[in-house]
């Protein structure tokens, strides 16, 4: 690690809080954020958030209902809605992106954060889950024609805020952006040099 990555010296004053919803291993995403040179903390509950955090990063794995339930149980729902409402930056990854939508076919009774309209749907392909690399169809220079690593059986449908698209049985939304709200269905932290650069770019922007 270079000197500029040492603790306390953050990249352009950016501090990232990774929300730990007890939903998958956070080691790779922590490494990705740290090697990008950002100051970082991992938080289970909102009252642990440092004052100087300016990016919330929400990874999620497993079932939609589990992740939504963790958001409610740990007291994140109102905090996240207020955070995004104030125009502050939130990045959801994998199921952490799916819960930004209203609901999911996976658990129809579970209430998403509804920061984006639409319902997450099951991908109609005989090999499920989708596991592996796919080229992104994106107009964003940060993602255009790049290969990303996916692990998912469900995904959000195409919409106005979709910034990258991929086909697996159905065409789905691989990345989404609405102002300062970002979602990535793929795993940037597992998508090689491209993914690491994307995390740095989006956190810094």
């Amino acid at each position: 690690m270079s000197q500029e990555n040492s603790p306390g010296v953050n990249r352009l004053g950016v501090k990232v809080a990774i929300i730990d919803l007890d939903s998958g291993n956070l080691l790779s995403i922590q490494t990705a954020v740290q090697t990008a040179g950002f100051d970082m903390q991992v938080v289970q509950k909102p009252d642990q958030l440092d004052q100087d955090v300016n990016v919330l990063l929400m990874p999620g794995q497993g079932r939609f209902a589990f992740v939504v339930d963790q958001i409610d149980t740990l007291g994140w729902r109102k905090v996240i809605l207020d955070w995004v409402g104030a125009g502050r930056k939130l990045i959801g990854i994998c199921v952490g992106m799916q819960v930004l939508f209203e609901s999911s076919d996976e658990d129809p009774d579970a209430k998403g954060l509804a920061l984006l309209s639409g319902k997450v749907q099951r991908l109609r392909h005989p090999k499920a889950p989708m596991v592996g690399w796919a080229k992104l169809n994106s107009y964003k220079l940060s993602m255009q024609d790049q290969f990303a690593y996916f692990v998912n059986s469900y995904a959000a449908p195409d919409s106005d805020y979709c910034t990258a698209k991929v086909v697996y049985g159905d065409l789905f939304c691989a990345a989404v952006q609405k102002n300062n709200l970002y979602g990535f269905q793929f795993h940037p932290e597992k998508s090689g040099a491209f993914g690491r650069a994307l995390i740095a770019h989006v956190c810094e922007q």
Binding site: R124, P126, G132
Partner: peptide, 12 residues
């Protein structure tokens, strides 16, 4: 799912 159908996929 239809077993005789070819499903589109961007997976490589």
């Amino acid at each position: 799912l239809d077993n005789n159908k070819t499903y589109a996929s961007d997976l490589i």
